[in-house]
Amino acid sequence: MKFIYKGVWVLCALLFTSQLFAAQMIMVRSTQSFPEAMLALQSAIKQQGYTVSRVQRVDIGLTNSGYQTDKYRVVFFGKAEEVHELTRKHPELLPYLPWKIVIFAEQDETLLASLDPESFNRFFPDDDLGASFERWRKDIYDILERVRSAEN
């Protein structure tokens, strides 16, 4: 069937792949245990003005197949209006929304990671998207920083 949106990206890909080596991931470690860090994350997301739309387990069945932890979640979040507005203007962004943060246990501590929205600039070269990516990046930093500095 018809494959659209293709040509434009080829050029961008050629121009930018060399830069993709850099860190494109925002990660923090919380010294809190998984359940505490999970609470801190959800409250930080709300404090930043977003709604947690879903907490998804991806690990159902993992423990059955020898995986030793089930403390692994994907937390989806967004702002309804922003999502509506952006996906109307930029439907190509749809598969990446709502935004997500993964959270998983590493022994007594907890790791959180999210893609860096700024890394999307290269493939969605649009001014108003650029502004959104920059804001998301700041928001994700703030959210994760709040989780990191949450007291035990």
């Binding site: 069937m1 018809k2 494959f3 659209i4 949106y5 293709k6 990206w9 080829v10 890909a13 792949t17 993709l20 080596f21 190509e92 962004l93 749809l94 598969p95 990446y96 999307f120 493939f123 969605f124």
Partner: peptide, 12 residues
């Protein structure tokens, strides 16, 4: 590194 032509796959 893998090279991708497009960040999204779209079919009509």
């Amino acid at each position: 590194q893998l090279e991708a032509e497009t960040p999204v796959l779209v079919y009509e």
